[in-house]
Amino acid sequence: MTSNMVDWQLAVSLGSRLAGAGPEVSAGEAAATVAELREGANRSTSYVRDFTGLDAGALSAPVLVVDRPAWIQANVDGFATLLTPIIDKLEAKKGPPGPVTQAIGSRITAAEIGGLLGFMSSRVLGQFDPFHEPSGRLLLVAPNVVHVERELDVDPTDFRLWVCLHEETHRVQFTAVPWMRDHLFSEFNALADTVEPQRLLDDGFKRLSEALKGGSSASLLDLMGSPEQKEIVDRVTGVMSLLEGHADVVMDGVGPSVIPSVAAIRVRFDERRKGVGTLDRLLRRLLGLEAKMAQYRDGAAFVRAVVDKVGMADFNAVWAGPDNLPSKAEISDPAAWISRVLQG
């Protein structure tokens, strides 16, 4: 964290306050949940390997079972890593802000980041953090898992393993395919290089205000993205759709053999993904979560189409290097990816 333009600790504090503690559980139930999630992640490693053919070896990326504040802290750390190049660029262009401006501005930005993470922290079940040194880490958010399994009225043991299958697939993706982490980081750095700080300040927040008033259906990324940025975003969208869709295919492929109630879980969870209430749907749209849901759906369709056509072994050519990754367009046209990568 090389800049004082964001009060990162205030962002953690505000986000944690907004997040709430989660469902009430006894000390014994909390300990059992943590143990079961850890065990589920460990069990899932071999399931993912046998289904996909991806071997992550000793899996150097650790598994952490966390509460909401710890998830917020982890994501503030990630934001600091990703935003530092943009902040440095702004300071280089305009010079360091004065002490009063810095004090006020850092708190305003912290409030915005804290509000975002406070909202997200009660909804995320798990996340692979690829930018944590040295090789990433898997976060499983225990209170949210308990909340959702109660909300859906599903078997807790089955649901926890189901969540672990999806999230463990991400850990395997990044550890069995070690270049993926550096590739994504380079894409985010390229995105930072395209940012025009003054344009973002002058135009982006005005358009965001219009969206909040109901005049736009765009996400934050759509509101603030230049054409050059959108080219990079399209590439990242292709990668993220692949990763999320692949994880969904794994959990659906492995689930029936190891999770007795998987069919009921999938139906109820998919219904939950649609969001509840007008405010929730608005926030999901603005934060790009609707696009996230599309990544699950479109990415899974891509993976299934390719595997059905050529088999898992040939599909795994997608992990050979960055040039083999599907573009955003190819996610919607699997035959084009097959032609380019496998038949070209």
Rank of each mutant, 00 (worst) to 15 (best):
S106K: 15
E36M: 10
L83P: 00
A27N: 11
I86D: 04
A111I: 01
D55H: 13
T84S: 11
A110N: 03
I86H: 01
I104Y: 08
W71H: 00
D77S: 09
V65D: 00
I104F: 10
V76E: 02
A111L: 02
S26P: 06
I108V: 14
A56G: 14
G40H: 06
W71M: 07
D67Y: 02
L90M: 10
D77T: 14
E36N: 15
R38D: 09
A32D: 13
V25W: 05
P96E: 11
G53H: 04
T52V: 12
S44L: 09
A41P: 04
V76H: 03
D77Q: 12
V100L: 15
P99N: 04
A27H: 12
N75K: 09
V65C: 03
A32I: 13
L54T: 10
A21T: 15
A103K: 15
G22C: 08
A103F: 14
R49H: 09
L116Q: 12
R107T: 01
T33M: 12
I113P: 02
I113C: 02
F51N: 04
P99D: 06
K94E: 02
I86M: 13
A103R: 15
R107M: 01
M120V: 08
A74C: 05
I86E: 05
V63T: 07
N75A: 03
V34Q: 05
A70T: 14
N42I: 00
W71T: 05
A30S: 11
I86R: 02
G114M: 05
L116A: 11
A30F: 07
A41K: 00
Y47L: 10
L117F: 15
G28V: 12
S44V: 11
A103M: 15
I104W: 08
V63E: 06
P62V: 05
V48Q: 02
N75Q: 10
G57F: 11
I113G: 01
P62A: 04
F51Y: 10
M120H: 06
Y47P: 01
N75H: 10
V65Q: 01
I108P: 12
I104N: 08
Q73D: 08
S44R: 05
A80L: 10
A30C: 07
G57P: 09
A74D: 07
T33K: 05
A56P: 11
A21W: 02
E24D: 09
V100E: 04
A70L: 13
E36R: 15
A70M: 13
A41Y: 04
L116V: 10
L54Y: 01
V100H: 07
P97E: 05
V76M: 04
G98L: 13
K94C: 00
V65H: 01
